[in-house]
């Protein structure tokens, strides 16, 4: 067993602190935000950073920091919903597809192939365009889009796992297929799924922001990083922080979750199985 390099652990630590910070900000938004996110105050329109508005205010005089903090709530919650539902569904489909094989596997695999043939965001756009805009639909659309990636990953892991002798031993002992799949195989593929879903979390923040940016996700006046970025874009030259701040927030969140995924991956190095 090789020892993990020190650098790897430092990255994992930094990434998880950043993620923790983001979550804390979202949770404590009502307590720490200086203003309500929707409070319009036309006197502070485009106010520069000050004691009262630490990051300044937007066109309607809404406090930028408060909106960022509240925006993180909808962004993180939506991303969580996307990842949780796609991971759950993808894992189950992948396990079934990989273990059952045959016709079931062939059919599911074709469906995944078709879904994966479209660029993720384009597919999400198509879905939202056909079922209607709004946060809930954006979440559903992205969840659907993310399912095939997870399912394919889980399927291939399941294929490998089900060739191991312990699975055959379980079959010989008369264990039911559902027991073998969910009690024996699932926990052994879980670490890789966890890594993938962390990385998906980063992507879904980005994709959700993109949908909101295009006006298909979170609707005004609700605070959301993507929507804020879209609004701020109009005043990019005049008040750059209105676009830059949500942009940076998105970037930080994406990088943090990506690094966390990478860090977890090194941790769950396959060589450690059975230890």
């Amino acid at each position: 067993m090789r020892r993990r390099p020190k650098a790897g652990r430092a990255v994992l630590l930094a990434a998880s602190s950043l993620v923790a910070l983001l979550c804390l900000g979202a949770l404590l938004a009502p307590a720490i935000a200086p203003h309500p996110p929707q409070a319009i105050d036309l006197r502070s329109s485009f106010a520069p950073p000050s004691q009262d508005h630490p990051l300044g205010a937007d066109k309607l005089g809404r406090d930028l920091l408060s909106r960022l903090l509240y925006g993180s709530r909808s962004t993180l919650l939506a991303a969580l919903l996307v990842v949780a539902s796609s991971t759950l569904l993808g894992t189950v489909l992948g396990l079934v597809s990989g273990y059952a094989g045959g016709l079931v596997d062939a059919m599911l695999s074709r469906i995944f192939d078709v879904l994966l043939a479209f660029p993720a965001l384009l597919l999400a756009l198509l879905i939202v365009a056909s079922v209607g805009r709004g946060m809930a639909n954006a979440v559903i659309a992205l969840a659907v889009v993310y399912v095939p990636t997870i399912a394919r990953l889980v399927r291939s892991l399941t294929l490998v796992e089900s060739r191991l002798a312990y699975v055959e031993a379980a079959q010989a002992l008369g264990y039911s297929s559902s027991r073998i799949v969910f009690v024996h195989i699932a926990p052994n593929v879980a670490p890789v799924v966890l890594v993938q879903s962390t990385i998906d979390f980063a992507y879904s923040i980005l994709d959700l922001a993109a949908l909101s940016f295009l006006g298909l996700g979170v609707q005004p006046p609700l605070a959301d990083w993507g929507a804020m970025l879209a609004e701020g874009r109009e005043y990019l030259l005049f008040a750059p922080s209105l676009a830059v701040a949500p942009g940076l927030a998105i970037m930080a969140a994406v990088i943090a979750f990506n690094l966390l995924g990478d860090g977890l991956q090194t941790r769950f190095d396959p060589g450690r199985r059975g230890a």
Binding site: A165, Y166, E168, A172, L173, G174, P187, N188, R273
Partner: peptide
Amino acid sequence: GLSRLRRSMQIVFQNPFASFNPR
């Protein structure tokens, strides 16, 4: 019937290291 058969017929595998779930 198979599940009943599993109680009458059993198997022991070649590779003892792979035939147990490590968890």
